[in-house]
Design a protein around this nucleic acid. Structure first.
Lengths: 121, 121
DNA sequence: ATTCTTGCAAAACGTTTGCAATCCG
DNA sequence: CGGATTGCAAACGTTTTGCAAGAAT
């Protein structure tokens, strides 16, 4: 069965997530690990962790995937100037109500805000 | 000044948008135009149209950009099985209220829903 | 020992860039 | 004519795949 071995690589990757407070890209992870873990292995392990729920995939729409450890459901405020990311909790109920009479069965949703943080305004 | 000539290519691209009721990808556009317009030109013109407000860029998080003509502000319900897309109007006020005390100046936001349409459930 | 996992190389994918040829006004 | 626009080829950044060598149980 795939994904069950506690390898050195997996320990390193998991540990790395605790050093970031924001969603991280594959390359950020790669750099953080001093390129001692091959990019391919990072990709494969992140994919695996994603499937098993160990991490959440986030998409900022800039062409690269990002990942973070599962926390309470939240969204993000992203600064388009400096890249700062701030978590934002929103009660989604008000949003979801509108989707109910559309015949769709909603599985997930994505909501992100882009703008300028305090420092960059 | 860039973007001011009414070329054949631009007429074709603009016309193509009227044949779709959903956000279209570059490749969909390319196919629709029977590959008679080079991919590069499509990319360049879409970028230009985006900057001048002629089209809106949409991101479904699947690694390819999509575009649609500007309509009233709305979001999308995307069927993960058949790819159907349904527009969804939502009053964003309730969402934005939460962002106001975060110090961020919000420029834009993205909200999309993923699930199964009526036919695919 | 067996199977999972890794690294390397190469390819795939969407997109962008350089440049000479072409079109538009 | 002169600058904007195009097509082609090549490069780019991110992600995926094939496969033999290596590590975990």
């Amino acid at each position: 069965m795939i994904g069950k071995r506690r390898t050195q690589t997996r320990k390193k990757i998991f540990a790395a997530f605790n050093h970031f407070q924001k969603p991280i890209s594959v390359l950020e992870l790669y750099s953080f690990l001093h390129k001692q873990v091959d990019l391919t292995s990072i990709y494969r392990n992140l994919e695996l962790m994603k499937k098993t729920g160990g991490i959440i995939e986030i998409d900022f729409g800039d062409g690269k995937k990002r990942y973070e450890l599962p926390k309470n459901h939240h969204h993000h405020l992203i600064c388009e100037s400096c890249g700062a990311v701030k978590d934002l909790k929103i009660n989604d109920e008000s949003i979801f109500n509108k989707t109910k009479d559309q015949g769709f069965l909603i599985k997930k949703h994505r909501l992100e805000f882009f703008g300028l943080c305090k420092n960059c305004q």
